[in-house]
Design a protein around this nucleic acid. Sequence first.
DNA 1: AAGAAGATTCGCT
DNA 2: GCGAATCTTCTTA
Length: 176
Amino acid sequence: MGKTLVRELGRGTLSGRIVEVEAYPIGDAAGHAFRGHTPGNHSIFREHGRAYVYFIYGSCYMMNVTSERPGIGGAVLLRAVEPLEGTNLMQRRRGTARVRDLTRGPGRLASAMRIDRRLDGVDLCAPGPLWLGTAVRPVGRIGRSVRIGVTREMNRRLRLYERGNPFVSGPKRLRV
DNA sequence: AAGAAGATTCGCT
DNA sequence: GCGAATCTTCTTA
């Protein structure tokens, strides 16, 4: 939370401040590591600090940051960022001028920052095509809730967000 | 082998 | 609010 997600493209740099995440820890039945290895989830079993990018609903990419030691399996889903650099390019990519709609939600943020399976497995801990930079300002008050869109382990409050931030996704009651 | 659900978004009502 | 889009994986047969 609060760190800067940086996407380096040939045309320029896109970046955003992470304001909403969800944890999918070890042994979590809602996590993609729970059922073991599949053709598409290799990266979630790599060491912490790598990208795990997957495709879902036939239309959306989702970006995660791996969180465990090699072979274990666990990750944090990036659900929303606050645009910092490259807002113009994000607007073109997303086909809207409305800044609040650019990166509010996991599928939207991946689309805005051109994150797809080609970035699956990249090291996020050093500058590169996709990486995590230092925070531009301290994170505010953190809210906590159940995770959005999951149907397993529904009692676990593993979604974290910066309270009141306009770029946080979900219904209003889950943003305050 | 076929059907359904999934860490979602978009357009239309 | 509801259904479509349409890939991956799991369930059931």
